[in-house]
Amino acid sequence: MPWTREQMAARAAKELKDGFYVNLGIGIPTLVSNYIPPGMSVQLQSENGMLGTGPFPFEGEEDSDLINAGKQTVTELPTTSYFNSADSFAMIRGGHIDIAILGAMQGAENGDIANWMIPGKLVKGMGGAMDLVGGVKKVVVVMEHSAKGESKLMRRCRLPLTGAGVVDMVITDLGVFTLDKAGGGLTLIELAPDVTLDDIKSKTEANFKVANTLKQ
């Protein structure tokens, strides 16, 4: 059985380590915050200028001056700090954030990622995505394996890129791949329960190796 969105988020949470500073994208990546193991200290960065992002407020306690990068109302924690947008992206672009977990429209075997525009459709902008994939120490993409019957994990992205050669790991509903950006390509390291190697091969456009430690 392929993983659900929640299970994909739970799998992504296994990439977190105690003491990490983390940036989570919108969608499935946001769910990762629900799977941080108890006792593990992880600080979430919101690129609009907050480190140590807390949960949504109780009803009636929303503060218009306190939002995350998705413009949602959030709360403060004892560890919270605030800073301006230039400092926020110095943190991101300077390689101080340990991991970014984000969604994608397409990912490729060379580490390219596309998640900001579809030619011919209205473009809303890339926000902080290009800075995150270019600057953060480890980039983990969480996405459905296929869309409309087509593999989203490709030889080369066909959509305009968000970043070139930047992705370290891809988690889909079918399995987990690591990516060697130095030219070693994609390696399948895990399969979702009851997904076979043949299943995933038939549904993946990208070339990939299979780890000899593959977990099934």
Binding site: N34, V42, P55, E61, Q72, T73
Partner: peptide
Amino acid sequence: IEQRTVRKREKSPAAIGTG
């Protein structure tokens, strides 16, 4: 407020993060 997001009081314990 562009996106008003809240949690229920009885829901506990709140996960850290965006919730």
